[in-house]
């Protein structure tokens, strides 16, 4: 099971956090501080796994961003690396060669995507296309709702003119 997902910039800034196991607010910031200290300090050729408090943290660096997932000691680390890559590829397709700024300004979209990939700390969908389809469908639902709202307010505006 994935206990939490963490996106860290190279400067240690948090870009996304998702907690599937209960961690109190204080605990969360402590975890982030601890892990960013460990992970950002690791050299490029080392393995992508860090043993931490009886768990394992699998991380992978993409440009300036570290994608980290914390799993149980007996989970398959290599598979988690693939899950991270899966997530990154979907982000990449959605944003069109994703960069850190996309994830900062559209952090909520990144969360929506993550919610289509993981639930309860388990993988939900192995098809990138399926995820893209569902996200697109929901985005269009939002757009329609917005259009309706604006046309409604136009109509009200016109009526009250």
């Amino acid at each position: 099971m994935i206990h939490f997902v963490l996106l860290l910039s190279r400067q240690g800034k948090v870009r996304l956090t998702k907690w599937y196991s209960p961690y109190a607010q204080k605990e969360r910031s402590k975890v982030i501080r601890e892990l960013s200290g460990v992970i950002l300090a690791r050299g490029p050729k080392l393995c992508n796994f860090v043993e931490w408090r009886g768990f394992k943290v699998v991380y992978r660096r993409y440009a300036s961003l570290y994608f980290c997932m914390c799993i149980d000691a007996e989970d398959n680390e290599l598979e988690v690396l693939e899950i991270i890559h899966h997530f990154v590829e979907i982000l990449d397709r959605y944003f069109g060669s994703v960069c850190e700024l996309d994830l900062i300004f559209n952090f909520h979209k990144a969360y929506y995507i993550l919610d289509e990939i993981l639930i309860a700390g388990e993988l939900q969908e192995s098809s990138k296309k399926a995820v893209a389809r569902i996200i697109a469908a929901q985005d269009s639902l939002v757009d329609t709702a917005k259009e309706q709202a604006s046309s409604l307010s136009n109509m009200i505006a016109q009526a009250t003119k």
């Binding site: 909520h108 919610d115 939002v142 709702a145």
Partner: peptide, 14 residues
């Protein structure tokens, strides 16, 4: 509405 619910649930989880 769906847009409100969507952001509401996201906030709830975060």
């Amino acid at each position: 509405g769906f847009p409100e619910k969507r952001i509401g649930y996201l906030g709830l989880m975060l």
